[in-house]
Design a protein around this nucleic acid. Structure first.
Lengths: 349, 349
DNA sequence: TTGTAAGCGTTATCAT
DNA sequence: ATGATAACGCTTACAA
């Protein structure tokens, strides 16, 4: 009953009166082993209920077929899409994922990076925490030439690759779209400028204003963690302004705060987009549910995850020349919906 | 430059002229080692940039400090919340998570279970795929006494534990709530009855009808994968019915299809909840955004993940008596919102 | 095509 | 409190 010893390649070897080495080779379908013995090995393995021991293997071969994934939080629509894409791609190539979250804290990020290193992941995929200021904690990886792939919230480093979208461009376009709709006083709800995604979106927004001779005002730039509460707070902020000073549009760096800001303004009697037009970022499911539907940027998380992992694995297997570039930029198209269509809606009124 | 050999406990031992065994103990802060040498070991370890090799350790100690998590899909609000809760709890206890998704297919589930077994996870957390019919693929775990924790979509097995909510009860209550609002013809959009969650919700719904002398009709029970499309299709189905035969309420087994059904009916000119009242399940973010807000069941994913992992780890560490029970049922309260408040809304009309 | 034997880095078991 | 030594299960030169 208490069958407790592991079944090893030695057991298989004994059964067949061959050496463990041959069994090891046979199990990997090495052509160096005759078809016949290979078949026998497979049969006996099944019969004895053999299960390979990956660490014994890893210890010897120095490869784990495991990738580390380190993200700020894993429960957002965007991030879980990325992870789904990563898992699919990894699985396809026989790799597993160890996933950990920094909960937006640099300290956790460091600690998680350490354990991943100790678990000898073959590569690391990372999106930085809100307040990470440097990547010293990744030095062990760089030192041992373990490939690091940054995605979304990246950090420029000579010997690693980044997978991103063109945040600057998307923000520029979406801001320009609002301007084209006749908006003149566009507020931006943004994130920590330490992170490329928020910095780039802010820059794109500002450049679009500049190119259209619209002034940028500090009061029109809110920085927060872009949560539901932050969206509601942004609405309160708007309501607290004298009517003449209020924005006629809001461009938020994510959909969550855009939607919660919209809801609060609607509750206060504002008409969207007539009084205030709205644009968000990410194409979160809520953007298709809020009324009017939210104009946003299609951020294809699953694709990003897929590409990041596929690249990493190609690199590990030496088949990838993709690594010759330092950064991969994915498309991120505008999705224009009613919340920003000032003219349209005015017409239909 | 090409510093390539691993720094091992032998290097530390040599530096200090002590044995590797002592270093090994010292690194784990074993009280068998004098405080002084422990300190020295830690210093030299840091100095040499020592990083412990987990497989060497796992190979010897037969424990990996890694838990396997196998889910249908990881990109739903509910599931990513569960995973977030699991990761937090695991991390707190020094465990890592290997996460894989079955993509709702039994075949993938089997294969993933195998690799997790081979990676010698200390325990397995699993929520079953849409069409899994038996758990033979988990036999290796049971045979070797590796604890298996089912959560959400569970399977009754004598030597494993389940973490669930009372789906039957929640469904009963939410159906009763609709009945109390005056609804008489309640449609149910459900999932595959093979899965406890959908079976129990269906049973709860049916029992509530029965207890209130309302007939159950097959035409009022749709089975699907509860996607956005399925929600829209349900609306089409309703629209295709003769007006007199249409439901006056819909209880959906998840929020996604409830919301997409609502949206389609609204677009067709229906007034919610006056014409059709709505209730969903899960408390997904979209349920707070749709208008009118969706009545739903608060399914606390993060808590479920936390409890599942904490229990598993307690069991592994022999500190848990919780394992004496076979099933843990978490609270899942109704969240009543406007979409189901027929009387209220009629009054305000 | 197969076998031999060394070794991966750690920990457990005895000793001392 | 510390040391010597033998595993853990697998891979991989090298030999045959």
């Amino acid at each position: 009953m208490a069958e407790n010893r592991e079944v090893t390649i030695y057991d298989i070897a004994k059964h067949l009166n061959i050496s463990a080495a041959t069994v090891s080779r046979g199990l990997k379908n090495s052509p160096a082993v005759s078809k016949n013995t290979r078949k026998k090995i497979a049969e006996v393995a099944l019969e004895l209920g053999y299960q390979s021991n990956t660490f014994a293997s890893s210890l010897r071969s120095k490869t784990t077929k495991t990738l580390g994934v380190l993200v700020p939080r894993l429960n957002s629509h965007f991030m879980s899409s990325v992870l789904a894409g990563m898992e699919k791609a990894a699985n396809k190539h026989g790799y597993n994922l160890i996933i950990a979250q920094s909960l937006e804290e640099a300290e956790n990020e460091k600690q998680n990076a350490d354990t991943m290193f100790n678990k000898r992941v073959d590569g690391l995929l990372i999106s930085l925490a809100y307040d990470t200021r440097n990547i010293n904690h990744l030095e062990p990886f760089f030192k041992r030439n373990i490939p690091v792939v940054f995605f979304d919230r990246v950090y420029s480093h000579p010997s690693s690759i980044s997978v991103v979208i063109n945040n600057y461009d998307a923000a520029y376009k979406i801001t320009k779209h609002l301007i084209d709709q006749g908006c003149q006083r566009i507020m931006h709800i943004g994130g920590n400028l330490l992170r490329n995604v928020y910095k780039d979106r802010f820059d794109g927004y500002r450049q679009a204003l500049k190119d259209h001779d619209l002034p940028f005002q500090d009061k029109m730039h809110l920085i927060s963690e872009l949560s539901e509460k932050d969206g509601t707070a942004a609405a309160k902020h708007i309501l607290s302004m004298p009517a003449a000073k209020r924005p006629d549009a809001v461009f938020s760096a994510n959909d969550t705060s855009a939607v919660y800001c919209m809801m609060a303004l609607k509750a206060a009697g504002f008409h969207i987009p007539h009084d205030v037009a709205f644009a968000g970022f990410n194409n979160d499911p809520i953007s298709k549910v809020i009324e009017p539907n939210l104009t946003t940027v299609d951020y294809a998380g699953e694709t990003m995850g897929n590409i990041a992992v596929t690249n990493l694995i190609n690199h590990l297997q030496g088949t990838g020349n993709l690594y010759s570039t330092n950064s991969i930029t994915l498309r991120a198209d505008l999705i224009i919906r009613a919340s920003s269509l000032k003219n349209e809606v005015q017409k239909t009124k």
